[in-house]
Design a protein around this nucleic acid. Structure first.
Length: 296
DNA sequence: CCCAGTCCCTGCGCGC
DNA sequence: TGCGCGCAGGGACTGG
């Protein structure tokens, strides 16, 4: 379940181990891994072979690596990757045996370590997309800037959130509003801000939004410092190592365990067809009341 | 435009 | 021992 910190850890690994290298061969082992590349598998392979991956960028949970010709001229395209639920980008020696869920393999002209895309549940995927220079590919333009980006506009986010007529957890998971937050960090941020996820966004005060955003920033920053969250071997960095933030989770996956703040047992609720964890004392469920009518 | 619901996919743990 | 079911959940898509 890679969210922003986990994807950022992968991005740093790609920057270090892959950027600057030229693709020798591409193998696609499962067509679903390149389903977002609409021109088909053959076109995907041809678009990457002989190209140099110049850098590794991220917005929200998406990664992209701009491509260049062998003479260094920008190709105007980028390799775009999303890890979905269970995707991994691994940098491994060619002698390392293939895993069961290997979906794509890239070898490089230097004969060094391969890049392997491994994905058990195949929610993730790869594609080559048009991309001007170092700008974000147009296909990713709808993903909002994430709160760790220096250009994140706090006031604009606060205004947009309070303009929404939905529940606050739903809004946190909306990648067009704020990038990079998934189910785990949404629950952790709401706990830090002492807000229940079902609170209506249009009734939050500016102070509550500011506290929520501080919670988001803090939890993402702290997780990144720990190398991300891992529950098992499904999320790892490019070298296959797990992060350690799962030890610091206050509520996510902690049903019946004491709230670190007040000791009340954490409850698990089904919410948006997925699990939500919260402290019933620190984060009381909002009183059900009719939605505030939108101003004409 | 805005928002909610559906579907995609596989491994694992649990109850019977 | 085996089988079926629920669950994990990001995001593209669809329909109201």
């Amino acid at each position: 379940m890679p969210e922003l910190p986990e994807v950022e850890v992968v991005r740093r690994g790609l920057e270090r181990w892959v950027a600057g290298r030229t693709v020798a061969t591409v193998e696609v082992h499962h067509p679903r891994a390149v389903r977002r590349h609409l021109e088909g598998t053959g076109h995907f392979v041809a678009a990457l072979t002989g190209r140099t991956l110049t850098a590794a960028h991220r917005r929200g949970k998406y990664l992209w690596l701009p491509l260049a010709e062998t003479d260094g001229t920008p190709a105007g395209q980028a390799l775009v990757a999303h890890l979905g639920m269970s995707g991994q980008l691994l940098v491994e020696k060619p002698s390392q045996p293939d895993g069961t869920h290997l979906r794509a393999r890239f070898t490089f002209t230097d004969g060094g370590r391969e890049l392997r895309f491994v994905d058990q549940r195949t929610f993730g995927g790869l594609a080559v997309e048009p991309c001007a220079g170092e700008e974000i590919p147009a296909r990713l333009a709808h993903i909002a800037i994430d709160p760790l980006d220096g250009s994140f506009d706090t006031d604009a986010f606060s205004a947009a959130l309070r303009r929404r007529r939905t529940e606050v957890k739903r809004a946190l998971l909306d990648q067009t509003l704020i990038g990079g937050v998934g189910n785990i960090y949404a629950d952790e941020s709401l706990w830090r801000a002492r807000l229940h996820g079902a609170r209506p966004t249009d009734r939050l005060t500016r102070a509550q939004v500011a506290e929520l955003l501080e919670g988001v920033r803090d939890v993402l920053t702290e997780s990144l410092a720990q190398g991300g969250t891992s529950f098992d071997s499904l999320y790892v960095d490019v070298n296959g190592r797990s992060g350690y933030f799962s030890r610091h989770l206050a509520v996510y996956g902690q049903a019946d365990r004491p709230c670190p703040r007040c000791g009340t047992p954490i409850v698990r609720e089904s919410f948006m067809n997925r699990s939500s964890y919260s402290c019933p004392r620190c984060q009381p469920r909002p009183r059900s009341s009719p939605a505030r009518p939108r101003r004409p």
